[in-house]
Design a protein around this nucleic acid. Structure first.
Lengths: 134, 134
DNA sequence: ATAGGAGTTCCAGTGACTGGAAGGTCAATA
DNA sequence: TATTGACCTTCCAGTCACTGGAACTCCTAT
């Protein structure tokens, strides 16, 4: 398989696949003409990575998960641990975004959004108190 | 005020303030010894930026919001529009994270997390179907 | 022969910082 | 007065995970 085929099949862009090769995530063979030559196993790996990335795992997580996948002596606890850490980080991101959302949507609701200059959003941002947001 | 003072008062790290000067967000004066010299207005601006960043606005949004803040002829509708776009982006991020969270937490729950190698998380990631995640 | 659609490499940019090296300045103390 | 230590300066490089683009080669079909 050439890079275009594997890109289409896996859903991972060709450019990204080249990048993954650069950082040693995949190691396709090379044809005589210099083209990358992907085996089924390479496709499988890329699909795995694509799926893991879609779940928000970092590239380093992907490396770890692939290593565990290929390790017959793995313990499911190891995989679960990686996933749980990631899950906690997702939760943190969600809480942060939710609190931003609350503040912001309350400000947006207070704002008339008309031709006049008075704006509670700007008023809030320009509060003169020291270091209240940190 | 030296950079350390304004950093402490505004909650924006000194390193970040220097970066903000680099990209033209703040323009402190310079003392004879080459030290940056911050006026009240600089502090105020940094506090504004810090607050806006804490609400997730991009640097470019900050530029826009500061310009509106300093524009006597602004219309609150302009500010509201910026905030609403940002709010929608926050909502999108939240939905994405929530769907990741759901998939992932269901997988985590299915995983025994013991010494055995069998793992539904890895099983899910290695589904052989073509391009299902894209 | 030529056109086009593949593929290749390499370099630079994204956003918003952050770390670190190498050095200059200032206030207080021994 | 010398020195210590905290503070300041600039500049360069790295982060994360790509993405865009230039300049080139290669393959296939007309």
């Amino acid at each position: 398989m050439n890079i275009g085929d594997v890109a289409e099949r896996s859903g991972v862009p060709a450019k990204t696949i080249r990048y993954y090769e650069d950082i040693g995530l995949v190691t396709p063979l090379r044809a005589a003409n210099g083209y990358r030559s992907f085996r089924e196993i390479d496709f499988h790996k890329l699909a795995f990575i694509g799926r893991a990335r879609a779940l928000g795992f970092t590239i380093e997580d992907c490396r770890t998960l692939l290593a565990l996948y290929n390790d017959d002596n793995r313990e499911s606890a190891q995989v679960k641990a990686v996933a749980e850490v990631h899950l906690r980080q997702i939760d943190e991101k969600i809480s942060k975004l939710m609190s931003m959302k609350e503040t912001l949507s309350s400000l947006v609701h207070q704002c008339a959004g008309d031709h006049r200059p008075d704006c509670p959003i700007l008023a809030d941002l320009s509060v003169v108190d020291d270091a209240t947001f940190s």
